[in-house]
Simulated scan of single mutants.
Amino acid sequence: MGTITFLLVLSFLVFFHELGHFLAARYFGVKVHVFSIGFGKKLYAKEYKGTLWQFALIPLGGYVKMKGQDDTKPGLVEEGNDSYNNKTPLQRIVILFAGPFANFILAAILYFVIALAGSNSLSPTIGNVQENSPAQKAGLEVGDVVVKINDKEIKTWDEIGAYIVSSQGALKFFVQRENKVLVKIINPHISDAQNIFKENIKKRMIGISPAPKIVTIYHNPLSALTYAWDKTIESSKMIFMGVQKLIQGIIPSSEVGGVISIGKVISDASQSSIVALLAITALISVNLGVLNLLPIPALDGGHIMFNLYEIITRRKPSDKVFMYLTLAGWMILASLMLLGIYNDINRIFLKGE
């Protein structure tokens, strides 16, 4: 069942990505010969309005085949106003960007649905108070629930940390203890910590950690839009930073995951709850959007760079350069895929995770 869920989720994400390319191409009058979910041999195909819609044997991606575009034939020229190669560089950039953009839109829609259905977060309940910390000196105790800091209403644990880090000076904490609301003045101190990439940093802290309690937050449509926007931006930034840290060597290559890890995560989420599955799907959708914008030839981002080059220099890159860079891009992608599969096998099967 987990494998079926993985394939359905992946096909769903690929469909939206390719739909973005398809709709932008049709908007500019480009003929689309094929809209494929998967690669390789056709399993099912049906022609509709001049486009062959198909499912293929290998369901790990997809593509739209437009008139006048073929990575294996960079010099391909197909006449007619409905040809991709006859569109302006800016129009081609819009067509290329539309795929990743569709992934961001899909993620925002999923986060919006999650917000309406009820998003799960850590409760703002204190599970531990460090010795000699500002929190202990102010009188906070295990089991206290933070309900407000200064004028900011607190509903989740993440809001506590975010407010402390972005604030200055002493803070007025309102905490619920049994049936009473107590007011505590706390002056955070600068302390050593680690970020999500395990880098050593310094930040304002008061010395508390959360209790293992979950709270479900329900949003109205207006606040759900804000939640969806914030989560999509937050996820995008996190993935962009993750790629940057990987390139810098801060994140080891052993952390790169492949299709096996993705399948396991989706399978685990599907067994947890529909909200968990939607959350993972949204995160993977953002991941696809970000990764496809990387300036690697053979990806949308690489093709966008080619068109930017054409806009700046007013000439296309030579067919030879285009082919060599595209082959290099495919080699990079193949290497990353093999690395991810190797890490998956090592992590899941050899280490028993």
Rank of each mutant, 00 (worst) to 15 (best):
T281K: 14
V265P: 02
I284G: 06
P295K: 02
D319H: 13
L308A: 06
K264F: 02
A298E: 05
V275M: 12
V265Q: 03
P295T: 05
M305H: 00
K264I: 04
F306Y: 15
G257W: 00
D300L: 01
L299S: 08
R314A: 10
I284T: 12
T313R: 15
S285T: 10
I280K: 07
I312Q: 04
D319M: 13
F306K: 02
T281M: 13
G258H: 09
S270A: 14
G289L: 06
N307Q: 03
S267T: 11
N287D: 09
G289M: 07
A298T: 13
K316Y: 01
F322C: 06
A279F: 11
L288R: 02
P295F: 01
N307D: 00
L299P: 07
N287C: 09
V290T: 05
V275Q: 13
I311H: 11
L277S: 09
T313W: 13
A276Y: 07
M305K: 00
G301W: 00
P317F: 02
D319K: 15
A298H: 04
I304M: 02
A276M: 09
I312N: 03
S318E: 10
S272P: 03
R314L: 13
I284V: 14
V321N: 07
L278P: 07
V259W: 02
S285I: 13
L291V: 14
K316N: 03
I296P: 00
G258L: 12
R315Y: 07
I260P: 05
S270F: 02
L278C: 08
D300Q: 02
S272N: 11
L277W: 05
V259I: 15
L277R: 09
L278A: 09
L283F: 15
L291M: 15
K264A: 10
S261W: 10
A276T: 08
I262H: 04
F306T: 05
A279G: 08
T281H: 11
S318C: 11
S261R: 11
V265I: 14
D319G: 04
F322I: 12
N292Q: 04
L283G: 03
L291W: 07
G258D: 14
S318F: 06
A298S: 13
G302V: 00
I260R: 06
A282M: 14
F322P: 01
I266H: 01
N287A: 06
V275A: 10
D300R: 01
L299C: 09
S285C: 10
S285K: 10
I274E: 03
S272E: 11
S261V: 09
V290W: 01
L283S: 12
L288T: 00
L291P: 04
S272A: 15
M305F: 12
A269Q: 07
I274N: 06
A269G: 08
P297E: 01
E310L: 01
V265Y: 05
P297I: 12
E310C: 05
G263D: 06
R314D: 10
S273W: 06
I311A: 11
L299A: 06
I266R: 00
I262W: 00
V275R: 11
G257L: 03
I274G: 07
N292K: 07
I280R: 04
F306M: 14
P297K: 01
L294D: 03
I311V: 15
L293V: 03
P297N: 03
R315G: 05
P297G: 10
